[in-house]
């Protein structure tokens, strides 16, 4: 028998497998296009450059957090602490830059390293103490929320000593280079983070182990993979990315707001799920997550332009999450 011979159900399933990845992205992407067209027809104000830039700016923080969440979710885990971790790193940046008066690069470094360290801690609690990710990161979420308030004395920390700080988010390098393209830096940061995460997921050992853990953690362990160490590395990476999100949001507000943060984790997870990443692990893409985050902010922006009351916007967002996951499941069943 030759290598190319395959048995019947195999081939049937094989042809299924080949389309699913492309279809998954197509579905989310199609939804995004339909939303864009729908809102442009409904309101002439929607397709204005300023509005599009506002949408992108609004996507940046949630998008970065969603990228962080994607990495963890692909391993079959979950991270509920991304929102309060973001706030915590912003507060740390505030302490380093405003209280201690250190230069900007040190503040940036401190925020990212703090994020990575906290992520690593969550990973260690999950991997070494064998506490389920949901519980471990729920605990971490509350701990960080509390610590942010304690460290800041419950008051916002303003970045008055660092005049260049707001540039991280609201400035525009592209606008300086090409006057017609004033994309805010926050969006560029999101773009860079996404490219980096995509590269790590698709091309590196760490990324491959993300999928292997989500697909079958025990098989990976029995293959001699140091599952615990890799898991901690993934949570640390995810935490570091949350640190970047912390810098972006603090820069946009020109302050670290210690009470902010809770609720962001659910928006991030929603974006991941709309983007077709499976909560049971083993499957997912950064591109899908980006599209998911865009769908959420386009929807909110569009509904606002159509003057829908804010309380109703939330209802629509919730419905979209359910519809998106249902559509994804139906596609999987019929494919």
């Amino acid at each position: 028998m030759t290598n190319t011979e395959i048995t019947a159900p195999m081939a049937a399933a094989a042809s299924k497998g080949r389309f699913s990845g492309a279809q998954q992205k197509l579905l989310a992407f199609g939804t995004l296009i339909i939303l864009l067209i729908g809102f442009s027809l409904a309101s002439p104000n929607f397709m204005q450059t300023t509005n599009i830039l506002a949408i992108l700016q609004a996507t940046s923080v949630n998008g970065i957090l969603a990228v962080a969440a994607t990495l963890v979710i692909i391993t079959g885990g979950i991270d509920l602490s991304v929102g309060t971790l973001m706030t915590f790193t912003a507060v740390i940046a505030g302490v380093v830059l405003t209280y201690w008066g250190m230069p900007l690069p040190l503040g940036i470094l401190a925020a990212i390293l703090t994020g990575a360290l906290i992520g690593f801690t969550s990973g260690a609690i999950i991997a070494k103490m064998k506490i389920p990710p949901f519980i471990a990161t729920l605990g971490m979420m509350l701990i960080l929320k509390g610590l942010s308030l304690v460290i800041s004395g419950t008051k916002p920390i303003y970045f008055n000593n660092t005049p260049s700080f707001p540039v991280i988010s609201t400035g525009s390098i592209t606008g300086d280079l090409i006057p017609g393209l004033p994309v805010p830096n926050g969006v560029l940061v999101l773009f860079l983070v996404a490219v980096l995460a995509s590269y790590i997921l698709g091309r590196t050992v760490l990324g491959r182990y993300c999928f292997a853990l989500g697909s079958n953690e025990e098989a990976a362990r029995l293959s001699g993979v140091s599952v615990d160490n890799w898991k901690m590395a993934i949570y640390a990476l995810s935490g570091g990315i949350c640190g970047i999100a912390g810098l972006v949001i603090a820069s946009r507000l020109n302050s670290a707001q210690p009470a902010l943060g809770q609720g962001y984790e659910l928006d991030a997870i929603a974006a991941v799920v709309i983007g077709g990443t499976s909560l049971s692990g083993g499957r997912g893409t950064i591109l899908g997550t980006l599209i998911g985050a865009l769908i959420m902010s386009v929807l909110l922006n569009g509904l606002r332009i159509l003057s829908m009351p804010q309380e109703w916007q939330t209802v629509v967002t919730g419905s979209i999450i359910i519809i998106a996951v249902y559509a994804d499941m139906m596609r999987r069943r019929t494919a």
């Binding site: 491959r208 999928f211 697909s215 098989a219 990976a220 499957r283």
Partner: peptide
């Protein structure tokens, strides 16, 4: 299936 293979990954991986 439980301990040997990452089922949703391909032969190469």
């Amino acid at each position: 299936k439980h301990f040997g293979l990452a089922l949703s990954m391909d032969v190469r991986n």
